[in-house]
């Protein structure tokens, strides 16, 4: 069971649904993919060519560690992409 990481707060965007590897995940308008995945307890975002696990590191678009596939476009930075309703995310863990 993943712990509740979303802080109870009023100042949040509208609730939307995205899918991560085919599974529906709740997100909020204005959130980055990184935030939505973290809230869902998904940290492992990809593997290096040699098979090492990697997740978001710098959080501000510099390190290219958080690459995921967004709407079938590969290698998008999760930390620099804002979620949209119905967005399809694929991680490569």
């Amino acid at each position: 069971m993943t712990p509740q990481l979303r802080i109870p707060s009023t100042a949040r965007g509208k609730q939307i649904t995205i899918t991560v590897n085919g599974i529906p995940v709740t997100a909020h308008e204005g959130e980055t993919v990184h935030a939505a995945l973290t809230a869902a307890g998904i940290y492992l975002l990809r593997q290096t060519l040699s098979g090492e696990a990697r997740g978001a590191f710098c959080g501000m678009g510099l390190c290219y560690e958080c690459l995921v596939t967004v709407n079938h476009i590969p290698d998008q930075r999760a930390c620099m992409t804002v979620v949209q309703d119905g967005m399809k995310i694929r991680t490569h863990g």
Binding site: H34, L44, A53, G55, F57, C58, G59, M60
Partner: peptide
């Protein structure tokens, strides 16, 4: 994964 910058 899970190790991140303070900024992140």
């Amino acid at each position: 994964p899970g190790v991140m910058s303070l900024g992140a």
